[in-house]
Design a protein around this nucleic acid. Structure first.
Lengths: 414, 414
DNA sequence: AGGGGTTAGGAAATGGGGTTTACAAAGTCC
DNA sequence: GGACTTTGTAAACCCCATTTCCTAACCCCT
């Protein structure tokens, strides 16, 4: 609510680093042009990032008649970020370098019974230890650990207020984790993790208003509004999965009827398939992943049943997304998470068609609908991004003292 | 997108003036406490507003042992603001003093045939001239004219891109109006006008995130996010009336089926009534206002049919609002416009109940649902508020030169 | 009536942020 | 080697808000 000039600096720092990561290597001039900031400001921010060793000077651009532009690039080895994706049946942990490349990964399966916070925390701690060991980085280089847990989260206190999977209520997850993990910890939920991943590295980059629609087992929508994540008053904005799409429709586990999630989440899609063709060979009861994969193959082979299921699903999804387009008028709608990734282009095309039918013409023409371009697990990436943001905003200011003649001209010459 | 320190100043200026208008008269100390700003900043901003003659010093508060606090209040006669509400069948113009009290009003009816931009502009110009004459203010005191026109509007170019009522396409409305009206003009649509009215003077004041649900002939939702109006990328955010509530439901004039508007807009409510009881005496075909009024009286008399219609309407409305609560997690949802005002508390209670059934518990407990506390036409008020915002942000800065010893201590003594 | 305590509010100093301007550094081209 | 061009740093400047200091204005008490 209360904006201060520090926020401007932080936002600009984000913007510059985003641009460097995306365009690495790049020059100050290009950064200034891309961000709209003055050269001096860019230079200052670049200086800060250099002092933090998050980026390095990597040489010079060939020039045609003037002083060559110095190039800066992400200093991949300048630190490591860890992203933790806690899901219903597994914990996945990835360790990234500062270029956001995956250096190590650890998966831990959780049995249905294992729902106590202590058990989950144990898995997370083990996996975090594993990735650090695998990557062989010294602990001091880990800048932070972002943790995504489904449900409602208070990111300030680090309390998981409510996790529907395991009936958790007000679990002080961050405190529990900090007993096993020595790095700075950041907690949020997968919806917002995916949104932040798109904002930094994906299709929402540079867009003021974007909606990241999450299609997995659950369904939600991360909201990027005014260039930043919209959290709402109690950090629970984005619960789009329980929007009523069909009055008195399918029963949802939330207790209501006709929620979007029951039609376009993985279990909903399976139900769409079952209703259309109960004995289809595409259907793998009890295995969502296998069914969605089979469906994708079926579409590729142009099987009528698969095509019809995708079309039906897209009709529901399109109606829901059209509502978001009308309401929020975003520049881009991103389809993210594994169901969207698996069904890919065929789903996208049907969705585009359905949205165009359901939305108003003016807002529709202003928004693009795309698949997430992020190749890896967006939840881990987004969680790691929370850690990155944390590392960037906790700069003590004036700590780097920039000794005269110190860092000038250390870069490898052309 | 790009935030600058000037924006902070403007936002703070808004905040301070809002507070003064709401709590007039008030002291600098209270303002500092209410806004969270330092005393010095408040003093500077108050000084600016004094220089602009928008507020005046009106005396002192009794003190108990110290220097008494100087009180400032809105300088009602320091200027006038005009709000124009262009609707399908009428043009309403109100002239406000700076305390946002209505000083004069003019209504012009428009016949169904009169849909040419020139005709509408003529009515507006006549009504604006009328209110200025009625109020007897010199023209120089009119700070601006805000104009609300339904549909899609480009507020920067002043073009009404699309007005569904009259099939307008890209009408340069502001240019046309400026030929007849010499005051600064501001253009937007009624949705955002109502939202801004609530943000400045109504139930959304002081809340970072709010949704202003507009129930009139048409239906929409003004979005206040992060303390400011959310406009979306092409200034068309808030088109909530065409959210699909019932898949394959009632046909809407937008071409789709099952839009919220077809169930909870005035014509929709009439249809709810007709479907329930085709021969009800409450029903006045061709007259929305009469029907809604009759319905309100019926509810007051506890007539079963009226009660049932309101309950049914609230069920639809509640489902729709629940989706907004889940998605945006606002602090407050305001029911605005004439249908909401007419049906009042009975509708509100049913809506609250319905929302609580359809929304997730966590976001629901964080949001309040209220009727708009604004007693006058919110569209005119909101339109005038656009003019007020315009007058406040176009401050030339350092124009008032604050001669030493100039304005000190001119106030009436206690 | 004249101190002493107390609160209000102005003025100046301070610090964060961004931009503009001046200038040195580092190239190419002739 | 000099002229021209471009980069990037450093210094000056403007804007905004906060902190600090000090005076003004009041009450109460003697």
């Amino acid at each position: 609510m209360k904006r201060t000039s520090r926020d401007i600096r932080t936002a600009n720092r984000y913007e510059v680093l985003r641009e460097i990561i995306a365009e690495s290597p790049t020059s100050r001039q290009e950064l200034a042009a891309a961000t709209g900031l003055s050269l001096a400001t860019v230079a200052t921010l670049v200086g800060e990032l250099l002092d933090l060793r998050m980026i390095t000077e990597v040489g010079f651009e060939d020039s045609a008649g003037g002083r060559p532009r110095g190039l800066v690039a992400v200093n991949a080895s300048g630190g490591a970020l860890i992203g933790v994706d806690i899901a219903e049946t597994y914990v996945r942990v990835e360790l990234f370098d500062l270029g956001l490349n995956v250096l190590a990964r650890a998966d831990e399966d959780m049995r249905p019974g294992e729902s106590l916070p202590e058990q989950v925390v144990g898995h997370v701690a083990a996996a975090v230890g594993s990735v650090v060991a695998q990557a062989g980085v010294e602990g001091a280089r880990v800048l932070g650990v972002g943790v995504s847990v489904p449900g409602q989260v208070d990111r300030d206190t680090g309390i998981a207020e409510y996790a529907p999977n395991w009936d958790w209520h007000d679990v002080p997850l961050l405190d529990l984790l900090s007993e096993h993990i020595a790095y700075p910890l950041y907690l949020d939920n997968p919806l917002r993790a995916c949104a932040v991943a798109e904002l930094w590295f994906g299709a929402a980059r540079g867009h003021g208003d974007a909606v990241v629609v999450n299609l997995g087992t659950g369904v939600g929508a991360g909201l990027v509004l005014g260039g930043g994540l919209h959290r709402g008053v109690s950090n629970s904005a984005g619960e789009w999965g329980h929007t009523t799409l069909v009055l008195d429709g399918r029963l949802c586990h939330c207790g209501n009827h006709g929620c979007v999630e029951t039609y376009v989440g993985a279990p909903g899609i399976m139900l769409n398939l079952r209703e259309l063709s109960p004995k289809s060979t595409l259907l793998h009861p009890e295995d969502q992943t296998a069914t969605i994969n089979a469906l994708a193959r079926g579409v590729a082979d142009r099987e009528p049943v698969a095509l019809k299921v995708v079309r039906d699903t897209a009709r529901y999804l399109g109606a829901g997304i059209a509502d978001l387009v009308n309401l929020l008028n975003p520049q881009v709608v991103v389809l993210s998470s594994w169901v969207a990734a698996t069904l890919g282009e065929p789903l996208l095309n049907e969705v585009r068609e359905a949205v165009s039918r359901h939305s108003l013409r003016r807002p529709f023409t202003a928004t693009e609908i795309v698949l997430s371009p992020i190749p890896t697990d967006p939840v881990c990436l987004g969680a790691a991004t929370f850690a990155l943001e944390g590392a960037l905003s906790s700069i003590s200011q004036r700590s780097g003292r920039r000794v005269a003649g110190g860092r000038t001209r250390t870069a490898p010459s052309a």
